[in-house]
Amino acid sequence: MSVHIDVGGLSPENVSVTLSPLAELGMALHALAEPDHHPGLQSWARTISAGLDADLADRLCEADFLWRTTYSDVFFPFAGLPGGRAAPAGTLVGELDQLDELTDRQFVDAALEFTQEPSYGGPVPDPLGCAVDRRRALELAMARGPEQYRFTRRLLHDPSVIRAWLRTLLQDCEDAFFGDVWARVRGQLTADARHKKELLRRKGLAETLTTVKAVSLDEKSAEITVDKLAVGRTRTGGGGLALVPTSLGWPHHMVLHRLDWQPVIHYPVASPALSTGTAAAPSVEELVLRMEALAHPVRIRLCRHLARGVYTTSELADAHAMTAPEISRHLTVLKKAGLVTTKRRGRYVQHHLDLPVVARLSSDFIEGLLR
């Protein structure tokens, strides 16, 4: 389970590392709507929410599904512009102008992502021009709730009205709180982008991506893998690849892999694991191995035993009335998952549960879900 980007034939000059105030505003709105996703931002979110004008707060509630349950591609309009090589305009107003350049069909498709996630990356429905697709979009929106249904109905009736409404809403957010946020985070984002641009120039894309958590490039297959509990695939083709840093995004790693749009990797510049020096979260594969390893009652009992001290295979076999080969098979699963450590002491091989790894499992699982 990962998102893959085919970068075969991608020219170095078509790889950009660039700042996007619109994408950062979208992430700020997500943090306000889902503060539990962002423990480090909860105090900030409470302060901002408490100080919002009632009218602005109400308008944000009308469209919060654009950034709450999914992160809509309306926050990456440059990726949908012709040629597949555009970059964010650099200012919020400039990026909103780019949003205005999208066709109605592109805008509607991106805005309705919250109802059409299963088809993301596949054939694009046309609810503006196809009655069947229109009914389907309304049905999916209705299943999500009355607010989503009203928004979708208004959007399909007259996209230009929703475009103008959304533009005003986002500009009001800049005036209310995001202008200060952007002034505070822009320096960190600029420094990160500068560093990655220098890496790109000197060492290439593969080395640059090693500095982005959960992202790697297999140069032999010319394929980027973003380690997520999601499945998706896209390609750069004759276009480009955009790397967009965010200061507010952890633990999310957003990957735009919409059909015929420029691929975008929206990555956090820091995380608690990076800032505190603690171990990084495991890959999705490692996480699955750990969950599967603990899904067996015998291995759970072994973990209980090994949490209290070090034991040899023979000691565990005697304690659990099992044969040594049976115990060894279960220990192999636990060791492969990184849950049990083994050390030799003289002629004895002793096993012990790695308590810090087990203690992190729930938080690692949550981060894997949100990544």
Rank of each mutant, 00 (worst) to 15 (best):
W44S: 05
L248A: 01
S247G: 11
S49A: 10
S271T: 10
W250P: 01
L99V: 01
R371L: 09
L200G: 02
R167K: 15
L200T: 03
E117W: 15
T208H: 01
A193S: 08
S275C: 12
D175C: 13
A23M: 05
A23G: 11
S283T: 15
M27W: 13
L138A: 14
R290N: 02
P21A: 08
P21V: 04
L229I: 09
W44E: 05
V17R: 05
A222F: 08
L128H: 13
G80V: 03
P356I: 00
A141W: 07
G238P: 00
S16C: 03
L334K: 01
R150W: 13
D109G: 14
L56P: 02
G26L: 03
Q98W: 06
Q98E: 10
A45Q: 08
L259A: 09
D318L: 15
V212L: 15
R144N: 01
G83T: 08
L199K: 04
I162E: 14
F107P: 06
T103H: 05
E62S: 15
L369H: 03
H257Y: 14
E207R: 06
L289V: 04
S363W: 09
P35A: 06
G187T: 10
H257D: 07
H30A: 10
T341W: 05
R150N: 12
D192T: 06
G309M: 09
A359H: 08
V181I: 14
A111R: 07
V358L: 14
S271E: 10
R329N: 11
F65C: 04
R308Y: 12
R290P: 04
A214T: 03
T276Y: 08
T208S: 06
W250K: 00
V226D: 02
K203G: 00
R308E: 15
V310R: 11
M254H: 14
L19G: 12
L92R: 07
D36Q: 14
L19R: 15
R59T: 02
V298G: 08
A164L: 11
R301N: 10
E174P: 02
D175E: 12
A183Y: 11
A28S: 11
G346Q: 13
A131N: 11
Q188C: 06
Q42K: 15
R154W: 01
Q106R: 08
V108M: 07
E198N: 03
G249S: 14
A131Y: 12
R347S: 13
G122I: 02
H320V: 07
P251K: 04
V264N: 04
L10C: 00
E174C: 03
S20T: 04
T190K: 14
W67L: 03
D73N: 07
Y348T: 13
W44T: 04
L155A: 07
G121N: 08
A31Q: 11
I366T: 11
A45P: 07
T91V: 10
Q106D: 15
P325S: 05
F365Q: 04
G84T: 04
V333L: 09
A23R: 04
F365P: 00
S363R: 13
A359V: 04
D6W: 05
T276A: 12
D172T: 07
T152K: 11
P123I: 02
P251I: 01
F107M: 06
L334C: 04
P118G: 12
A50S: 14
S2W: 13
A183E: 15
D97H: 03
A270M: 15
M322F: 13
G187V: 06
